[in-house]
Nucleic acid binder design. Structure first.
Length: 157
DNA sequence: CGTCTTTGACCAGCGC
DNA sequence: GCGCTGGTCAAAGACG
């Protein structure tokens, strides 16, 4: 609903031009989420490194994460879950989006030589989950998947 | 002292 | 029915 929340968080850094969401992954009720909302609701502010290149790197590759949801929703809709996945060009996988995340697991997927990290919101009552995974053919790219919505304002960094 | 990180093991769902 | 993968939880440790 209220996508407002924060759009001008105290981001000391102003070079988060690496944030690119041109490659959105479709999962369940993706259509319910507005891309604009993510831009205003999930601002990223890399605290360091990577932030001088990119800027206008056009992603022309194709997504290969379709195998992620090959579980049980082939032609069916078990339930609606807000899943938002987008690719970010950054050397760091821990992007500070204004919320506090607690890593609760790491797993190595066969589809990628790199491990997949699972994060969860540290705020109680907030069941938002975040999945961070590196691109298989482009390690410089990071696939961030948000699941759920925050029930609180940004925890400010 | 409090919080978060890390690793392993366990469980569940789906495929064959 | 079995196997596989993915996902989650738990405990201990480390660090601030």
């Amino acid at each position: 609903m209220e996508n407002t929340s924060f759009r001008s968080l105290d981001s000391p850094l102003s070079d988060y031009a690496n944030f690119e969401f041109s490659e959105l992954l479709e999962f369940d009720d993706w259509a319910e989420v507005d891309p604009t909302m993510m831009i205003s609701g999930y601002p990223v502010n890399p605290v360091s490194a990577a932030a001088n290149e990119a800027t206008s790197n056009v992603i022309g590759s194709s997504n290969h994460l379709e195998a992620s949801n090959g579980r049980g929703n082939i032609g069916s809709r078990p339930e609606r879950k807000e899943k938002v996945a987008f690719r970010t060009m950054t050397e760091i996988e821990i992007l500070d989006d204004g919320f506090k995340w607690r890593k609760y697991g790491k797993k190595m997927v066969k589809n990628s030589p790199n491990p997949r990290n699972y994060y969860r919101c540290s705020i109680e009552g907030c069941a938002v989950k975040k999945r961070v995974e590196r691109e298989r053919e482009d390690p410089r790219y990071v696939i961030t998947t948000y699941e759920g919505q925050h029930n609180h304002q940004a925890n400010t960094v």
